[in-house]
């Protein structure tokens, strides 16, 4: 039988692994482009930018309504937050796995 501490850590490890899968699923649903604004001859134009094979690709979007810009920025923030969560979960999994490596019940 696992001890109380090991039991709790093991439960948390399973939670972290389950969450990692969910965050990866949610992240894959979000677009990989990020919105970039360029000022050309005094006017603002928007592009979707994405890094592919070391190169930054731009896709022209033209002038966008503020509501559309806000929507894109929210999605961008959501993607950044999910990526940060995935990084946190990776650190948790690493820590929990190393903490659970010991043989003795704690």
């Amino acid at each position: 039988m696992k001890g109380v501490i090991k039991g709790a850590l093991s439960e948390e490890l399973n939670n972290s692994l389950r969450m990692k899968r969910r965050y990866a699923q949610e992240l894959s649903k979000l677009a990989k482009w990020c919105l970039v604004r360029k000022k050309i001859k005094g006017h603002y134009y928007y592009y979707f930018a994405q890094r592919r094979n070391g190169k930054v690709l731009y896709r022209y979007q033209g002038r966008l309504l503020p509501i559309e810009v806000k929507k894109q920025k929210t999605l961008q923030a959501k993607r950044a937050s999910y990526r940060e969560s995935l990084r946190k979960l990776d650190r948790q999994v690493k820590f929990l796995r190393s903490a659970l490596r010991g043989k003795q019940p704690v």
Partner: peptide, 24 residues
């Protein structure tokens, strides 16, 4: 919304849990 929670369905029955690396 905006706190970074994702919805998950636990077990075969599908109980909803709201997950965040810090809280469930």
């Amino acid at each position: 919304d905006g706190l970074g929670f994702v919805v998950d369905f636990k077990g075969s029955e599908g109980y909803i849990s709201l997950n965040h690396p810090e809280l469930i």
